[in-house]
Write a protein that binds this DNA or RNA. Sequence first.
DNA 1: TTGTAAGCGTTATCAT
DNA 2: ATGATAACGCTTACAA
Lengths: 338, 338
Amino acid sequence: MKRTTIKDVARELNVSISSVSRAFNDKYDIRKETRELILRTAEEMGYIPNPIAKKLGQSKTFNVGVVVPEFVNEFYAEVIIAIQEVFLSKGYQVLVMQSDENPDLELKNVKTLIHNMVDGLIIAPTTESNNMDYYLKQVKNDYPIVFMSRVEQSVPASKVLFNNQKWSFFATEHLISQGYKKIYHLAGHKNLCVSNERIKGFRKALNKHKIAKENYKIIETGLLAKEGIEVIEDLIYQHDLPDAFYCENDLVAMGAIKKLKDNGYRVPEDIAVIGFTETRMAELVTPQLSSVKQPTFEMGKSAAKLLIKQIENDSFEQETIVLNGELNIRKSSIRSEK
Amino acid sequence: MKRTTIKDVARELNVSISSVSRAFNDKYDIRKETRELILRTAEEMGYIPNPIAKKLGQSKTFNVGVVVPEFVNEFYAEVIIAIQEVFLSKGYQVLVMQSDENPDLELKNVKTLIHNMVDGLIIAPTTESNNMDYYLKQVKNDYPIVFMSRVEQSVPASKVLFNNQKWSFFATEHLISQGYKKIYHLAGHKNLCVSNERIKGFRKALNKHKIAKENYKIIETGLLAKEGIEVIEDLIYQHDLPDAFYCENDLVAMGAIKKLKDNGYRVPEDIAVIGFTETRMAELVTPQLSSVKQPTFEMGKSAAKLLIKQIENDSFEQETIVLNGELNIRKSSIRSEK
DNA sequence: TTGTAAGCGTTATCAT
DNA sequence: ATGATAACGCTTACAA
């Protein structure tokens, strides 16, 4: 199955390959009828310009790469859909690679994409790692990269972030305002900046409302339901349960709720729970789970637009977009009489 | 930032470009010291072979494409991870594109990947559509394609399928064996072969156990929680509730459970529910949801291996792998006294 | 063992 | 308006 090339078409019509090329690239002078004839014949012959050949010798590939830590959770999947939407409409192809929360695989993914000459990259790093050195070196060399989500404010590059601190503050304040006195935060990972930002927001709210030291705890838990379950198990064993849990994400929250319910605690009557990075499940579980919704769609769109701007305008101005979310209060964190 | 090319390295060392090329491609004769010198210098100069140039003029790109209907649900995300694992270990790069359940976008994705000269494709089509004609034309031309999941047994191509009929049969039989007399199946879509297979399995179990016509229903519902909710709403309104629901997937099941609970029905005491294509949530919700687990990991691995075989052995023998699953029985479908 | 040069499928520059 | 040809970066037959 040999591919039909520009030469085949040229030979067929007894024209030069340049004419065929011109027919396919409007920008050149070519007689209208010639062009139409060529286009028609090419169509019949099943000719398709070879993008690989096009890339070679041209600086631009119209491919962009997206590297995410994972897409088993809805969050990045939704972000990717938005990114794809923007790029497809601009004639770009989006190549997605996931790093399985592994910095080594992440670096490999990024290099693969760069070597394959994508015009730019959107990277959501897994965790703090020295990969950042490599990425920033590329940025310095004017390679278009937009970072997303799990990145420090201080990183000198274009990026789209969620205002974790602020919304963490709101989530916490909501619990306080509901009258919960003792609040534990099931946090993510120490080396995840989003987790740290959320801890800061948590602390800020506690300070503002003068919650005493003995009335809160920050427990490094993780990102998985299983980890939520284990922590609750532990706390139950130690007879150390608060009025409310503020969790790193919905998965941890649901793990926590499950374990609490299994042990006869009612949510929210006995103990309230709130999640973060809302998932579709939040509305489906019992009780419905309060959570902070991150604007996945907007995040993807913003990142894509930032990258396109860098790619097309050669504007290497570094821009940081910080997005806001929504605090969706549902049954799981609404105070009721015991 | 001009990229270092093979020429730069050759010039630097006063050797020919072929020598440099040879140094990077073990298979040719080259003196050991020369090779090492070249490799070292190339490294220092930051030279990286340009994969685009490599692809041009060579038949192989060491890229493969994966096209899935969506990856917002865990199912395909997990399958992709397995696929990536196999291919990465063999030195291939995996390019993922999602079709948003849209056959037109799907065709576009497939064409994009083919034109970009991926060595082969794994396709999980969205729904029955005439795209299949195009795909099968490629297959006939010995283009390596492996189909996955949502494909008819009869499709003349290599494919990896789940035995939907069989496991649907088991799920239904389980409900019957629990003593549920009246069972409704919230089915997927008419034009989804997996849904149809599941309906067949459902029917088979009913026949085997001689369930009378008035004691079952098949209701086309869809794939979303929202759709499960709506159907239940409707049935409640019509005072037409069965003993048990067997749902197209976990999302529909969870939607159903939510609506039932909201209306004061207890699951499983009043009405049992079982899902399909188990998600992580199944274990976290109350009651824990019974479901059929599809072997996502195995599915990805099998598809990847089949594709590699086609690519590397030029064995165009068409192979069909049918996978089995697990019926995970949990609280939501276990009979208890009313 | 190493070098030369053709070729992969395009685009773009320069003639015509 | 059209054609001839170099160039993109690499591999590979062939020559040395």
